[in-house]
Design a protein around this nucleic acid. Structure first.
Lengths: 239, 239
DNA sequence: AATAGTCTGTTCGCTAACCCACATCGCACA
DNA sequence: TGTGCGATGTGGGTTAGCGAACAGACTATT
């Protein structure tokens, strides 16, 4: 995926009408996203928005004492940088590439212009923002009420959906940062899942062997977010 | 505050130009909001949006097993029901009146129409949504990393700001529901604050005696949200 | 083949918050 | 003036997750 033939993999770009896509296409740049890249730092002015193709971007919040938590995760189903159309220009979040791959990059001013002058991308962007809000609020609840075991399941499922494959390159340390817990907590939770035969874990590589069971072990949060995201996307098809 | 003379108390309505306000005014209805009123239930279609004047509305998420958590809180600085302009028509949240008072109610369709046809209210609504998103993500982090003591401080400060008075009618049981913790946890935290002379607590009524100290005891979350909300509102003044 | 570095597994004590049960206090209303 | 109920305070046992420290296992590099 190094040319522009994969543009339709991003659901938002794919949902555009032919005319809208032709309008935007020349402004898009296909860029590589490497694991760990910080796309924006907290409070930094957003200069580009990104439409992921096969990478995953995490929205992290980092506290003053350095501990962090993942607020939401975005892949091919969406975009990052919605704050530019909301009028904020920046957010208090850090955006990090959680899984390497490619994305289409659009200058923030172009998105703004398109957003203000054409209802099509406006509708799509807003609807996706609504899905993002759902994911954030679900994360807040999950952080409050559910165990690390459950949250790990949720996190794995969200990542799998965005990669569309059952393998994930990610150390326990990094997962712990995303979930905002200790690495040992992830080790323990992952160990349980491995004993159950749900996943296989080897030095920075996780393979999901039994997805149905993973879903069964997960809290409701995954399902709520997925259903709501689908609901909003299905609506997104008609204009 | 039982007539329509208090319309300017809501910051969004106040920020409208004279012509925009004249356009919307006839569609607004001044309504009383009683403590505990459920404005919308999770998943319910949103028929009206509300612009609080002196009441406070909590966005709650209720899990399948009945435990709950407050995702964000809205008062005179904003509105509830932004999902209608996002295209969602509903959210998986419950909205509850946390502090009684009045609000202006607008049919969802009217807001949508105004949003799609006039940039003024669009800009205001979107910017407020951005502030809401900030609050939600901060809540997620706070739930993960901060103690009940700190969260109680945050919650009190958020409520105080919206009431613009140092007294709050609210039982510990209700606060516990908002924070998504046990009532005993709140009793303990409130006890500490009372011993320190920061608050005075008597049967469903809290009085804040020493706000500076309350802020000092609070985690960073309050400050981040407040600064970000201010930043977005200040921008909101120019069109 | 050795070595350094990274990733994973495991342990021990500790604390915050949980669950449950019950005591007490104060306001409202009869 | 009681009396009942809703609100608050307290305690004991339990647990999930934290912090720190360390051992083993795998990988890459030389």
């Amino acid at each position: 995926m190094s040319d522009t033939s994969d543009i339709m993999h991003n659901h938002l770009l794919a949902a555009l009408s032919e005319t809208a896509r032709q309008r935007i296409l020349p402004k898009l740049k296909h860029v590589e996203m490497s694991l760990g890249d910080v796309i924006y730092e907290s409070g930094q002015t957003i200069e580009y928005v990104y439409f992921p193709v096969d990478c995953i971007i995490s929205l992290l919040y980092v506290t003053v004492n350095g501990s962090s938590a993942e607020i939401s995760v975005v892949g091919k189903e969406g975009m990052v940088g919605v704050a530019v159309v909301m009028g904020g220009e920046s957010t208090p979040n850090r955006l990090v590439v959680q899984s390497r791959g490619y994305a289409y990059r659009l200058p923030a001013a172009e998105l703004k212009h398109e957003f203000n002058n054409h209802s099509e991308i406006r509708v799509l962007t807003l609807r996706f923002t609504q899905a993002l809000i759902t994911q954030m609020s679900q994360t807040a609840v999950c952080n409050r009420h559910h165990s690390i075991d459950q949250q790990l399941c949720r996190w794995l499922l969200l990542s799998m959906d965005r990669l569309e494959c059952n393998q994930l390159n990610m150390t326990q340390e990094l997962i712990a940062n995303m979930l905002g817990v200790r690495r040992e907590g992830v080790t323990e939770a992952a160990g349980k899942l491995q004993k159950l035969g749900v996943i296989e874990y080897r030095r920075g590589r996780i393979i999901v062997l039994d997805r149905p069971q993973l879903e069964a072990l997960c809290c409701e949060c995954y399902d709520v977010v997925k259903r709501e995201t689908n609901r909003l996307q299905v609506q997104g098809i008609h204009f």
